[in-house]
């Protein structure tokens, strides 16, 4: 089934120069395995096509049940020259949580 990441994971984003970075965290190990399979650089790049010139990098951290996602060229050149309201990209993590992935219905956080 299609599941919004906000239901099964948490995330925080920040900035370094023209690069936005997101930590994406599974609440449990079964969900982490799904995230590691489904949240690929290609899919994240497609999700952020409107703001990210690319490339997108995804790093695995099995020990933290986490993915580190880096969006290169996503901040209009950097916070201090950006015209955007969210020049620091703090809400980019929220935008990621709106992404949907294919996930089994029996993940712990999806329990009835």
């Amino acid at each position: 089934m299609k599941v919004g990441l906000w239901r099964i994971a948490h995330a925080r984003s920040g900035d370094k120069a023209d690069r936005a970075d997101i930590g994406l965290f599974a609440y449990d190990a079964p969900t982490y395995r799904v995230l590691a399979r489904e949240v690929t650089a290609e899919r994240v790049a497609a999700h952020f096509a409107a703001i990210c010139a690319g490339p997108v990098e995804v790093y695995r951290l099995d020990n933290l049940l986490a993915l580190k996602i880096v969006l290169n060229g996503a901040l209009e050149g950097g916070a201090a020259r950006s015209l955007r309201m969210d020049n620091l990209g703090k809400t980019i993590a929220a935008a990621l949580l709106r992404m949907e992935i294919e996930a089994p219905a029996d993940l712990p956080r999806l329990g009835a």
């Binding site: 948490h10 925080r12 690069r19 790093y59 933290l64």
Partner: peptide
């Protein structure tokens, strides 16, 4: 862990 990965590029 939210703070650990904050504003990190390659965590390795």
């Amino acid at each position: 862990r939210q703070q650990l990965l904050y504003e990190v590029h390659d965590p390795h």
